[in-house]
């Protein structure tokens, strides 16, 4: 045990000086004192690079928009750059936040198709994104999660929310068809039908565990 003559307190740790008065501690040499906590180690500045990445993307958006605007032409290429920058930052943030990989996949597909549709809108030609890319991306994602659930039945409830979300999004191409936003209709119809059947299947074929999962997910 060490002792501070000024503060009249004992120390059960191998400090050389008193925390409160900075005076040298007396050591009675009888006990071997040990530090009872984990040592602090110097850390790398990983946060700096994370912030730098976001900062550079913001600079890129502002500079591109300014140059395009200064040319006096309608904004086009700068919007593509801006959307790509936002997409890069969003994907980066989404990827570093740890979640289930199925959830990451679903979010990634939503982000990617959303960005492609925005790029399509920026160049006044969005039909390829809305008619083809969007329904096929959602369809593939729904199919993958369905397969995953069938193969890994034990963990199906881990993938349940991703399946519900992507199936509901899969109904959108059908809605776009009805509203006349699409020109090629068959991919949207397939996507809508597959998503609708998936949702009906979830509701109409409930086992006891499925009913329990509904109860948990939707308890209010």
């Amino acid at each position: 045990m060490k002792y501070c003559k000024t503060c009249h307190i004992h120390y059960d740790t191998p400090l050389e000086t008193c925390m409160f008065c900075n005076g040298e501690l007396e050591d009675n040499q009888q006990d071997v004192l040990s530090y009872k906590f984990a040592e602090v180690k110097k850390r790398s500045a990983s946060r700096f690079f994370y912030r730098l990445f976001i900062f550079l993307n913001i600079v890129s958006i502002i500079v591109s928009l300014y140059l395009d605007y200064a040319d006096g032409l309608p904004l086009e290429w700068s919007l593509i750059v801006g959307i790509t920058n936002i997409y890069a930052v969003s994907m980066f943030i989404m990827l570093i936040i740890p979640t289930l990989w199925t959830s990451k996949l679903t979010k990634g597909i939503i982000l990617t198709t959303g960005s492609l549709i925005l790029i399509g809108l920026a160049i006044n030609d969005y039909s390829w994104a809305l008619d083809i890319v969007f329904p096929f991306a959602v369809l593939t994602n729904t199919f993958l999660i369905t397969i995953l659930i069938l193969v890994n039945k034990k963990k199906w409830f881990d993938y349940f929310s991703s399946l519900i979300v992507i199936s509901i999004i899969g109904l959108l191409p059908g809605l776009f068809n009805v509203l006349g936003f699409t020109t090629i209709q068959w991919p949207s119809l397939i996507c809508f039908a597959y998503s609708a059947f998936t949702i009906i299947g979830i509701i109409a074929l409930p086992s006891k565990t499925m009913r329990d999962e509904f109860k948990r997910r939707f308890h209010i």
């Binding site: 045990m1 009249h8 307190i9 004992h10 120390y11 059960d12 740790t13 400090l15 050389e16 000086t17 925390m19 530090y35 009872k36 906590f37 040592e39 602090v40 180690k41 110097k42």
Partner: peptide, 15 residues
Amino acid sequence: DVTIDTNYKEVYDEI
């Protein structure tokens, strides 16, 4: 009679 323990170390002032 007070006995102090701490997770502080003198070298931590640098870190």
